[in-house]
């Protein structure tokens, strides 16, 4: 079994309403040092050994992320 961690975030310039709300909320709580919050998705994918990065990228482009608005980053995870 191989594992990949996938991070899906909004592309630069795409407004992120939950992130903006969390940013204001933190500032309202007194964390004035906060200048930006972006909220994305974290996906843990388990696949059979030998599955290529290209194949995982294909899954991201097709379903897990929408390339019109989102970027994704794939990290292979070494099992401890």
């Amino acid at each position: 079994m191989a594992r990949f961690d996938i991070y899906v975030t909004y592309k630069k310039g795409i407004f992120d309403p939950p992130g903006a709300t969390a940013e204001r909320a933190l500032q309202n709580l007194g964390y004035e040092e906060v200048s930006s919050v972006k909220i994305g998705k974290f996906i843990q994918l388990e696949v059979v050994d030998g599955t290529s990065m290209d194949r995982v990228a294909e899954m991201c482009g097709k379903l897990l992320a929408n390339p019109v608005i989102e970027d994704y980053r794939i990290e292979p995870v070494e099992e401890a």
């Binding site: 407004f15 309403p17 019109v68 608005i69």
Partner: peptide, 17 residues
């Protein structure tokens, strides 16, 4: 329709949540 690429663009969460 946007996800199926029959129409361009995307629909995000409403401003103000």
């Amino acid at each position: 329709l946007t996800e199926a690429h029959l129409l361009p663009g995307a629909l995000l969460r409403n401003v103000g949540l």
